[in-house]
């Protein structure tokens, strides 16, 4: 670990006990899962076509949701960080809402808005014939809805902490606004941007409630890894556990991998 040496004081024993209990909340369920893993059958279980389809679909949709979040979430973060306007706190509240809303509520809201009889989905269907529910596009949309807030808050925080004088200096030297954005602003917040993208991707990968409510559940079209776990839990528990282990390994890998960036950006 680099950085300034911090003075550590030994905390009271009670703090350590409570901290251990806090850690146990996260670790015990994982141990329960690992204890049930049928290790010898693991390769065979993970080789099944349901697993393969779900993994492929999960990677595709979570990456698509992350790209879409970058395209529209970063501008949104920029607006929130740099512009002053009435109702800004309301806008920020709306952006953060999916973080606290039960995903199934988000899924139902998406269905009523973007379903083929929804207020936006109806006209969309009439004009283009596109039906989002029960489609892979619907999975991407559901994942974007729940995951994009992670990117917006991370990038907004970084933009606020950025010293605006760097951008001012670049502008004074004749750089266009786009040039300032791409050559000064974005490079300076790159660590936070990367952390935000990784979190967004991880959240999109784990998305369940909004997906099953809005996009349904069909192998190779809308059945992502979490949905496959849910369905398998009911009739094929060993496969469900194998899939769960796969998700834990992937998610933990991402979170550990971005550890340094995460600490620095917050």
């Amino acid at each position: 670990m680099t950085g300034p040496v911090r003075r550590t004081t030994r905390p009271p024993a009670l703090v350590l006990v409570l901290a251990a209990l806090g850690l146990a909340v996260f670790v015990v369920p994982l141990l329960g899962l690992i204890a049930r893993v049928p290790w010898s059958r693991l390769p065979e279980l993970l080789a099944g076509d349901v697993v393969g389809d779900a993994l492929r679909l999960s990677l595709l949709t979570s990456i698509a949701a992350t790209v879409i979040s970058a395209l529209i979430g970063v501008p949104l973060a920029w607006v929130l960080a740099r512009m002053e306007f009435r109702g800004k706190s309301l806008v920020r509240g709306l952006v953060l809402l999916p973080l606290v809303l039960p995903p199934v509520v988000g899924g139902a809201a998406l269905l009523f808005a973007l379903g083929r009889r929804g207020i936006v989905g109806g006209p969309l269907n009439d004009l283009t014939g596109i039906v989002l529910p029960f489609s892979t596009g619907g999975v991407v949309l559901a994942a974007t809805f729940v995951a994009m807030p992670f990117l917006v808050i991370t990038v907004e925080g970084a933009l606020r902490n950025l010293d605006a004088r760097f951008e001012g200096a670049a502008a004074t030297l004749g750089a266009s606004r786009w040039r300032v954005l791409f050559r000064v602003t974005l490079p300076m917040i790159l660590p936070s941007l990367a952390a935000g993208l990784a979190l967004t991707w991880a959240r999109a990968l784990g998305e369940f409630g909004a997906t099953i409510t809005f996009a349904g559940n069909l192998q190779s079209r809308t059945q992502t890894l979490p949905l496959a776990v849910f369905v398998a839990l009911e009739n094929d528990r060993d496969t469900a556990i194998a899939l769960s282990l796969l998700m834990v390994v992937v998610s933990l890998g991402v979170l550990i991998g971005l550890r340094d960036r995460w600490w620095r950006s917050w």
Binding site: L111, G115, R116, R117, F134, A215, N217, L218
Partner: peptide
């Protein structure tokens, strides 16, 4: 020609009632 396998009958009914299926 199945488009979705719902986890229980109530969620299937919800989507039928909403005219999404």
């Amino acid at each position: 020609a199945i488009d979705t396998n719902e986890p229980d009958v109530r969620s299937l009914l919800t989507k039928l009632e909403a005219d999404e299926l």
